[in-house]
Amino acid sequence: MLMMGLLSSRVVFFLFLVFVIWVQVDFAEGSAGNYISWEDLRVNEQMLSFEKSHNEVRIIVVNQNGGGHSKTVQGAVDMVPNNNKHRVKIYIYPGIYREKVYVPASKPYISFVGKRNQTASAVITWNSKSSDKGANGQALGTYDSATVGVDSDYFCATEVTFENSVIASAGGKGMQAVALRVNSPRAMFYRVRIKGAQDTLLDNTGTHYFLKCRIIGKVDFICGSAKSLYENCRLQSVAENYGAIAAHHRNSPKEETGFSFVGCSIRGTGSVYLGRAWGNYSRIIYSKCNMDGIINPEGWSEWNRPDRKKTAVFAEYECKGKGADRRYRVPWSKSFCYEEARPFLDKSFIDGEQWLRL
């Protein structure tokens, strides 16, 4: 009886152990982690030819010349099931993909990955502008002019170019032409190029991280209401005469949003403002950035709304270069000390400890 009881206890313990291991494995394989990691931005390019199907390996290959799972980027996005719980990597072969792409909120955990060290080789491009008519006969507006729109949570992209090829001149009506619109609750962009003229990057809503990206434009080429950190990015003006880098929209001091640029380089042509107050409480901070002489000496604009001088938060901290000379800055802009700048200097500004594992 003693032996039978001992054996029975061991069987129960063994079954319990198997159950625990099964639960752990099932949990690990059943859903993606609620974070973005370096692994989410990697694809083993040497092994792509051996992959059998996107369902098996969770990699969808886009090749406009055939030989992949899809010839278009949108076709690859459409292959991802709604409410997917796994990370799906869409590997985009070099080429110019002339299409509009939408990644909906119903498809989280998607990565766009281009060929390693060739950011300019996979280009998603279109040429819609805000004054163009949509299918309903109405003007598209800035929002729907986007070449690529992303609402997907935990979205990330690397080594890809997002482009809107509309050529806009400063002050032109209806010439807003978005290359990338981001409404993701959380998203990361690493070594991507975002190219356009007016409103190039509509960093619309959510919390986002841009690392070592190149963003090109003329007027308000980084705009929106998001809470985003731009770290070690290259901000390149292609303005002929005048323009502006950033236009942030914030309606209340209670809104925890803003654009923080840290360690970025500002280069290019024209005479550009660092930022314009799109909303009453617009918030833009440049820290430890290297500014070329293209910066308008005044630095900042209240968008012809004098009342915004009292409420907008426009600040600089330890910036260098010819454009960082603050002697002629508008008096209502701020020169931050370390304690004032500290909340905006790293990933804690975007609560990165909660959703980034880098």
Rank of each mutant, 00 (worst) to 15 (best):
S184I: 01
V160Y: 07
I285G: 07
N183G: 10
L274D: 00
A197R: 12
Y209A: 01
A170R: 04
C233S: 10
H248P: 08
R191K: 15
Y209Q: 00
G224I: 00
A168P: 00
Q236D: 04
F162T: 02
N164P: 00
L235E: 02
T257N: 08
Y190C: 01
V160R: 05
T158N: 09
L274E: 00
G171Q: 13
S282P: 04
F189V: 05
T205S: 08
F221M: 08
D153V: 12
A277R: 01
S228E: 01
T257D: 05
G171L: 13
G275A: 07
D151V: 03
G172S: 14
E231Q: 11
Y190A: 00
A170I: 03
W278N: 13
G263S: 11
Q236L: 13
R186Y: 00
D203V: 12
Y273N: 06
S152C: 05
G243W: 08
A177T: 02
K212Q: 14
K218C: 11
E240I: 10
R191E: 15
G206L: 00
G279D: 02
R181S: 03
R191L: 15
G149L: 08
W278G: 10
G206Q: 01
A197V: 03
L201E: 04
L229M: 10
Y273M: 13
M175N: 10
A168N: 02
H249E: 07
A187D: 06
D203N: 14
V178L: 09
T200P: 00
Y154W: 12
T205N: 12
S152E: 10
V238A: 11
Q176Y: 00
D144C: 02
R181L: 06
F221S: 05
F259Q: 09
R191S: 12
V150L: 07
R276C: 04
K173C: 07
V238L: 05
L235V: 14
R214G: 06
G268C: 08
